[in-house]
Structure formats: C-alpha cells, structure tokens
C-alpha cells in the first residue's frame, strides 16, 4: 500500500520549471531514496511534502489525505516528521528538553496551555523521551546543552526528536551532508536500526551513493525537475539514463 502518493506535481519559480510533472509512490514501511544532480528539484519536492511550498498543480496524498494547503504543524500532526539538511534543534535547551518538546507536541497536539504540571514530574513523557535517547545513544548526555554537541550528535538528536513522535513518515534531507566517513557509517547503521523495529516509512534525499545503496529499497532519480527513473537499486545502478544524467552534469561542471 502506498503511504505517499505524488501525482502530476508541477512547480515553477519565475522562468524556471523546478518540478515538471513529478509522480512518485512510496510504499508503507519502505525506504525510498530520491537522488539527482544539484538543482534537480529534490529539495523543492521535499518542501512540497511538508507545507513549505505549494505545487502549482498536482496532488500530494498522505494516507489518503491531501497535504496541500495545510500548515507545517498540521502535516507533522498527521504523522510526517522531517530532518533538515543542517540540524534544526533547540540549541539553548538540554538534550532531554529537546526530546521532551516533540513528545509533548505528539501528546498534547498543536496547542495546549498546559501550565500547571512540572515538566520534570511528567513521568510518562520523561520515560518516553529517555527511551528514545537510549535507543539513539544520547542518554548519557541528557543534561548537556544542545548547542555544545558535535555535528554528528546534533543530527542524532534531531532524529531522536523525530522518533519521539512515532512518525508514520520520516523525511531526511541529506542526513549525512558534511559528515566524516565514520559519522556517515554510524548514521547509516542508525537509520537501518531505527526503521526496522518501528516500520517507519522513510524518504531520503541524498548525494552520497554509498548511503543510498546501503539504505534504499527503491530509488527515484530526479533530473531537471522530472523523475527519469524509479526502480530497485540494482536496476538503477545499470540504468543508462541515470548515468547520463549524472555524467552529463559532471561533464558540464
């Protein structure tokens, strides 16, 4: 069953056709990678899923519900979490508070003036946040202020924040961008681990082919705003159109 259905999406910025009739179908529980050269429209497409951009035409259906024209927080409440290219975390707060916030958002909804109970007496939420931190390997740093984390740890924290919400769909925008080989491998291992136990559907935008082929069940190749191929990883590897799209770009560069 497809959890995310993208049909005939077009997006134009002035004279630039950023997305040209994009179709995409993401299976429940699978890992779907979107690859493509720079400027292919990957981030534009992702922004259409989270409410930051609205396509000019076409539809984006998540679990049978349209994601178009609704606010980012409503999309998140529907079960879509997002990891940003540069980690977006609450830098002034402790690691634990960083994970408590999405846990509260998941429990209390988009807005609740819950002003009487103390955060440190919310045992259920606290335990949930701690179990996620355990899983991600940040439990021993729970009182550390988030701004003092390494880049790799910030990324892990951001993933913990997403996982704390039990999302149905996790969007990852270049999760290993700017990481060392070791950090990249750790991230791959982490993504493999967290997905399996929870059955979360993942969409990964990535440049690093090593990451893509280690994780993806299915790969969509985007070039100049169009999906030129959508297939299993082994078929994508040998697809001549994909080679052309990448080599052509490299030749120009």
């Amino acid at each position: 069953m497809a959890i995310l259905e993208v049909r005939n999406v077009n997006k134009r910025f002035g004279g630039l056709q950023a997305l040209n009739d994009v179709n995409l179908s993401v299976e429940q529980g699978s890992v779907h990678a979107i690859i493509g050269p720079n400027g292919a429209g990957k981030s534009t497409l992702l922004n259409c899923f989270v409410g930051r951009l609205t396509p000019d035409t076409g539809s984006v259906m998540f679990n049978g519900k349209s994601l178009l024209g609704i606010m980012p927080h409503e999309i998140n409440q529907a079960g879509v979490s997002r990891v940003f290219q540069t980690p977006e975390i609450f830098t002034d707060l402790s690691i634990l508070d960083n994970v408590m916030i999405p846990t509260f958002a998941h429990r209390d909804g988009a807005f609740k003036v819950n002003w009487w109970p103390r955060v440190d007496r919310e045992a259920g939420t606290q335990d949930h946040a701690m179990s996620v931190l355990e899983e991600i390997g940040l439990a021993d740093k729970k009182d550390v202020i988030a701004s003092s984390l390494s880049r790799g740890d910030k990324r892990r924290l951001e993933m913990a924040m997403c996982l704390a919400q039990d999302p149905k769909l996790l969007l990852l925008d270049e999760p290993t961008a700017g990481m060392s080989r070791a950090d990249t491998n750790a991230t791959i291992e982490l993504l493999q681990r967290i997905g399996k136990s929870r059955g979360i559907t993942k969409i990964i935008i990535e440049h690093d082919m090593h990451v893509v082929f280690s994780l993806a069940d299915k790969i969509a190749v985007l070039a100049q705003g169009t999906v030129i191929a959508e297939d299993l990883p082994e078929n994508i590897k040998t697809d001549p159109r994909v080679k052309e799209a990448y080599l052509g770009e490299e030749a120009e560069a």
Partner: peptide, 8 residues
C-alpha cells in the same frame, strides 16, 4: 523547528 514538530 517547532513548526515542523507539530506545534502551532
């Protein structure tokens, strides 16, 4: 981040 965390 808060908006993308489901908070209005």
């Amino acid at each position: 981040r808060l908006n993308y965390t489901g908070v209005n």
